[in-house]
Design a protein around this nucleic acid. Structure first.
Lengths: 204, 204
DNA sequence: GTCTATAGCCAGATAGAC
DNA sequence: GTCTATCTGGCTATAGAC
């Protein structure tokens, strides 16, 4: 039992350290993107040697993939939270998801990975955990989209794919960053404008 | 006079060659993006040696900047063409610009340069020709936006910045590529859907 | 101005002591 | 598992012959 609790403690320490690594990766990915992020920077930001990083993650791609998995975990958690709301319509749930993504982006916590990078894309598509979560989130959102279309809250003439991809795309839209760079608007105001133009376009 | 015409001829040859280089760069930028594009690939695609490339352009950044300048030239040409239409409203002119950008993207001819890459950004911001064209295009589009807002074709409650940035953002929106990757829709259909969701969101 | 060959550098990844 | 020190490959850029 004492051996078991020592093991558990070691595992906890490991988890905490790896979570710190992922937080650094997440911040750097949001700041510079995958290509410009260097493993040396990650190591410096975490405060450990580069070789130690490679004891935890096999490659730069694995580092980025871990950050994306954590993003999907948080997304899934929010999906479940929204699903538990009894007072909300499907439209309101979808809008809450969009708003959360926009706020995450403006807070500088949305990791950005180019969909073009083939090595990283391969790593993500090889991660069963990531794919499972992505599929599950997409299915739940797809259900809400269908319900919203049936009740007339979303234009039924649009294929649900189009609606889903549009929501996903807003999570990496450059407009919020542009407006923030201008410096003359509050984050709340920016989110409201993007929400308006996005969702007015999907409704009818 | 014969010397002058030989010089002109040489200059023409130079122009044609450099245009071929820029076309290759444009295609590769659209395909892989700036970071993943290598100068070796550009040279191979053009069919000349890498060292010859550097006789025409001083750096990889200069290559990409040249492609962006040509994109701005074509944008400016389309702006002038739209300005000459006597039958069109400002809204219709803006929509024509958006549609053109979407079609360019689906044709695989829209160069994508990460706004994050500092060296490339520095090169672009140092290019007076590029900045001048960008500013002039933005001013004309801004004028059309104000007119469309005054006539109620675009929501007057939106700052014109928001409208302008939203139009620019559609030129690099990932949604068309996602839908095209699905493979079950025609390019025309994809453009129509994105146009609908984009412009319905800006109108009112 | 075009080529071949190479310099120089940077970043990802690893060896090996502790 | 953490460190320092190093290897390695690939990419930008250039030298120098023609």
């Amino acid at each position: 039992m004492s051996a078991m609790s020592r093991l558990s403690f070691k595992e906890q320490v490991l988890r905490v350290r790896e979570d710190a690594i992922i937080s650094s990766v997440n911040r750097l990915l949001a700041d510079k993107g995958f290509d410009l992020m260097t493993v040396d920077e990650v190591a410096a930001d975490v405060g450990i040697a580069k070789a130690s990083l490679y004891k935890h993650f096999a490659s730069k791609e694995a580092l980025a993939a871990a950050a994306m998995v954590r993003l999907m975990q948080r997304t899934q958690a929010l999906v479940e939270q929204q699903a538990a709301r009894t007072d909300a319509t499907p439209l309101q749930r979808l809008q809450a998801m969009t708003r959360w993504a926009l706020e995450l982006q403006l807070a500088g916590e949305m990791p950005s990975v180019p969909s073009q990078n083939s090595s990283l894309r391969a790593e993500l598509m090889a991660s069963q955990a990531y794919l499972d979560m992505l599929m599950q989130v997409s299915e739940v959102l797809g259900g809400w989209i269908h319900q919203a279309q049936a009740s007339g809250d979303i234009d039924p003439a649009l294929p649900s794919e189009v609606v889903l991809y549009t929501i996903y795309a807003r999570a990496c839209d450059p407009v919020p960053a542009f407006l923030k760079a201008g410096g003359s608007h509050s984050n709340e105001q920016i989110v409201d404008w993007v929400m308006t133009t996005c969702w007015r376009g999907l409704q009818r």
